[in-house]
Lab assay of single mutants.
Amino acid sequence: MDSLVVLVLCLSCLLLLSLWRQSSGRGKLPPGPTPLPVIGNILQIGIKDISKSLTNLSKVYGPVFTLYFGLKPIVVLHGYEAVKEALIDLGEEFSGRGIFPLAERANRGFGIVFSNGKKWKEIRRFSLMTLRNFGMGKRSIEDRVQEEARCLVEELRKTKASPCDPTFILGCAPCNVICSIIFHKRFDYKDQQFLNLMEKLNENIKILSSPWIQICNNFSPIIDYFPGTHNKLLKNVAFMKSYILEKVKEHQESMDMNNPQDFIDCFLMKMEKEKHNQPSEFTIESLENTAVDLFGAGTETTSTTLRYALLLLLKHPEVTAKVQEEIERVIGRNRSPCMQDRSHMPYTDAVVHEVQRYIDLLPTSLPHAVTCDIKFRNYLIPKGTTILISLTSVLHDNKEFPNPEMFDPHHFLDEGGNFKKSKYFMPFSAGKRICVGEALAGMELFLFLTSILQNFNLKSLVDPKNLDTTPVVNGFASVPPFYQLCFIPV
Score class of each variant (00 low, 15 high):
G62M: 01
I244A: 04
E142P: 02
H78T: 12
C164F: 06
L102Y: 15
I264Q: 03
R150F: 10
R333N: 11
A149K: 00
F126W: 13
E85I: 03
K235H: 11
C13D: 00
E81V: 08
I178P: 01
E300Q: 15
S336Q: 10
H316W: 08
G417F: 10
L19E: 01
S140A: 09
R186Q: 03
C10M: 14
L11N: 03
P317A: 10
V5L: 14
R21E: 03
L362N: 05
I47H: 08
T299L: 09
Y243E: 05
I374P: 00
L312H: 04
I205T: 11
M345T: 02
P481G: 07
L43V: 11
P337I: 11
R105L: 02
H410W: 12
A238T: 14
A369G: 05
E154M: 09
E354G: 01
I374H: 04
E444Y: 05
F446C: 02
D265A: 05
L234Q: 11
Q214H: 07
P409L: 03
P363Y: 04
M345A: 02
Y225S: 05
L102F: 10
I488F: 05
L87H: 04
T66P: 01
R307A: 04
H276S: 09
A291N: 01
E93W: 11
G62V: 01
F263P: 04
T348W: 04
P337S: 05
L14S: 06
E274M: 09
R377L: 02
P33S: 00
R144E: 08
T159D: 03
G416V: 14
S365A: 14
S23W: 08
K52Y: 08
H396G: 08
S254E: 09
F187I: 02
R342T: 03
V248R: 04
L43A: 10
A106P: 08
A369R: 15
P367D: 02
P227Y: 07
R150T: 09
L170D: 02
I222W: 08
V6R: 02
F428H: 05
K28N: 14
V472G: 06
A173R: 00
T364F: 14
Y243G: 02
A321C: 08
D143Q: 14
M345D: 00
N56S: 08
D143M: 12
V330W: 09
P409G: 01
S429K: 05
Y424S: 08
F295V: 11
S51L: 04
S58K: 11
K315T: 06
L152R: 00
R335T: 05
G442H: 15
L461I: 15
R377E: 02
T301A: 15
S53A: 14
S478M: 08
D408T: 09
D341S: 01
E148Y: 00
L87Q: 06
L395Q: 11
T305P: 02
T385H: 03
D49V: 04
V479Q: 09
E354C: 03
L314F: 01
F114V: 07
N289H: 12
N258R: 14
T167S: 15
D89P: 03
I169Y: 09
P101R: 08
K48R: 14
K48E: 06
F110R: 13
I99D: 09
E199T: 13
L54R: 01
N204H: 05
E199L: 12
P464S: 06
L314C: 09
N259W: 07
T167P: 01
